[in-house]
Amino acid sequence: MYTVIGHPRSRTLRVLYALEEMGLDYTLDPQMPRSDRVMALNPSGKIPVLMTDEGPITDSVAIMTYLADRHGQLTHKPGTYARARQDAMTQFLVAEIDAALWTYAKHSFALPEDLRVPEVKPTAQKEFARAIGLVEQMKGEQPFLAGERITLPDLILCQCSGWALRAGFDVPDGAFGDWLKGLARRPAMQRALKQIEALG
């Protein structure tokens, strides 16, 4: 059984979503960033951390990739063209979507107040809007971001979209918006979200 360390109102949620989609057993230790337990496992103090039989794994995308490859779910086979396209989409989401949201968050509350530059926040919102528009184009008419079945990029985008909505960003509507809402309504994501409710 895996142990996920990190509060689910963070990137930890995308890891819980993946575990729920794969039907894997796990326990959740809802630690906040830079808690004593987190610092002992990850010098950066960032969450989530996944505890495995071999030791801890840090970074949400690294954790999700490990789980997908190990259990043969939510991913295309390593070394294939389909996997390369999947990985390209994952990297785009991290570099463009997640990065814009994190820039906004850092200059809203995460950084010490004297280091915040509120003037960058509108730029982060514009960068997010540009990037998610490109994701909509890249998805096109296919059922999921990397083809005919759900894979890790879909889960990452779903979590980022919820983050964006909570931060007051504009998220696309229309058919693409309905598709995003469908990802959020999946039973696995609903089970993951209930863990936030349980913590109050």
Rank of each mutant, 00 (worst) to 15 (best):
Y2N: 12
V4I: 13
P8C: 12
R14G: 03
L16K: 06
M22H: 04
M22C: 05
G23E: 10
L24S: 07
Y26D: 11
L28S: 03
D29M: 07
R34P: 02
S35G: 09
D36V: 14
D36N: 09
V38Y: 09
A40F: 02
N42W: 03
S44P: 00
S44D: 04
I47P: 12
V49R: 05
L50C: 09
E54Y: 06
G55L: 12
I57D: 15
I57F: 09
A62P: 05
I63F: 11
Y66M: 07
L67A: 08
A68Y: 02
P78V: 15
T80C: 06
A84H: 14
Q86P: 08
M89V: 04
A95L: 10
A95Y: 03
A99W: 01
A100S: 15
A105E: 05
A105Q: 11
A105V: 08
P112H: 02
D114G: 04
L115Q: 15
K121Y: 05
P122N: 12
T123N: 08
K126A: 15
A129N: 07
I132T: 01
E136C: 01
E136V: 03
K139M: 04
Q142W: 00
P143T: 11
F144H: 15
G147M: 09
L155M: 10
L157F: 01
C158P: 02
Q159W: 00
Q159N: 13
S161D: 04
V171R: 04
G174T: 11
G177K: 08
W179V: 00
G182E: 14
A188D: 14
M189C: 04
M189Q: 06
Q195H: 11
I196L: 06
I196W: 02
L199Y: 02
